[in-house]
Design a protein around this nucleic acid. Sequence first.
DNA 1: GCCGTGTGTCACTTAACTGTCACAAAAATA
DNA 2: TATTTTTGTGACAGTTAAGTGACACACGGC
Lengths: 236, 236
Amino acid sequence: MTGHSVLIVDDEVAIRGMLRMALELAEFDCLEAGTIDDAHEIVVNQRPDIILLDWMLPGGSGLELLRRLKRDDATAHTPVIMLTAKATEDNMIQGLEVGADDYLSKPFAPRELIARMKALLRRARVIEPGEPLRIGALNLDMEARRVSIDEGVIDLGPTEFNLLLFFMSHPERAYSRAQILDYVWGPGVYVEERTVDVHIRRLRKALQISDGPYAELIQTVRGTGYRLSARGLELP
Amino acid sequence: MTGHSVLIVDDEVAIRGMLRMALELAEFDCLEAGTIDDAHEIVVNQRPDIILLDWMLPGGSGLELLRRLKRDDATAHTPVIMLTAKATEDNMIQGLEVGADDYLSKPFAPRELIARMKALLRRARVIEPGEPLRIGALNLDMEARRVSIDEGVIDLGPTEFNLLLFFMSHPERAYSRAQILDYVWGPGVYVEERTVDVHIRRLRKALQISDGPYAELIQTVRGTGYRLSARGLELP
DNA sequence: GCCGTGTGTCACTTAACTGTCACAAAAATA
DNA sequence: TATTTTTGTGACAGTTAAGTGACACACGGC
């Protein structure tokens, strides 16, 4: 994992410094930007391999930069990790809709940041904003917040929708209940871990409406949590 | 958030007392140490879930303890919050290098400390991503927590998965049953050594599903234990 | 107020996994 | 070959994890 370049976008010099130190120890090349305009310019000219983006930036939130990047073909495929201050409800989901690829809420462990960066770089899958997510005939439209199988609309509550959105944007990977809570409910929301089970069940039930095997997309990984995977399923 | 144990490492009794009070209110079990040696011993024997570590300690700085822990596989993943007089950048560099997970500079609000501890604990159980492990067509995907041969998914229980994970990350080397128990079951777990045999058998059986010689990967080393080796096997 | 909807939690059921045993088979030793 | 030691194997019961239905509460709209 050498030679990858990271762009750190944060307005606080101290935080940039800390991140830079941590990342350089992990052999990343660091670029820094304090404003959206700087960041945009650096992205266009220097093409970092990955972007760490603070949620709160002067002159528009991080979302604004994300939108600008994703609008531009050249940069649309750069993976972005969003750093969120904390518990601002559905930052996460909102960001997913616009096209961030992963999230981390402060305070976070440098180790985990690096682990996630590596995972993203390896996977090199980037969420396309606006593009509907689809698996077989299962279709999730972020903008309309609607899910359908073939032509049949699936009726999901907000939480189930977010849950499915999360899984569909992170397929083929197991998540613990704690992680799912973090991602879907937001950091700092304290609910029982088993609440996840109940919502998983509701989601599965909703997906079962069709006669396809879509309910089996969401698999339980015993002792760990859950995973969305289409492997081994016969999908149209 | 009940039942988590914290180790407080600080040489000032007054500070330890204050921390203990705050943490017990938040339902943490507290352990205390005043020196590095004490701390190290407690960590090894009692396995706290998280460590609060003062930067300045007699007989070496807190960093020294961090280094010692890091060197030891078993404790390398215990999250550590470093308490610093003031967050100097120097501290951060060195702290990050050896693996502290968060920093807090005195004086700090107990509330913030607890918030950060909770955040760290919640993330402590993240599923560590890693490079995919493969031998021939046998593929162990840590992120998905799934094993496959060619395209066929192998169904493993949690223990068998961990066992295979252990062997695949330490190939070509024989381990005693005691060692295997230590690594796979975790230290301090008392089960019969022959339990390993049974799980080895279950693992072999699962790997035999395919017609390849994958079950023979796990070899018996008579009088010693077991070993994973691909030598002499015809693998695609 | 009164609904309907969505949500989190609980108690209970069901299913899966685990550890241990007793015995069989194999290998080492005599 | 007979004996001893070590490992393989199938079955069992206890334990733990996940599935499930019901309920109570909060919320927004009427």
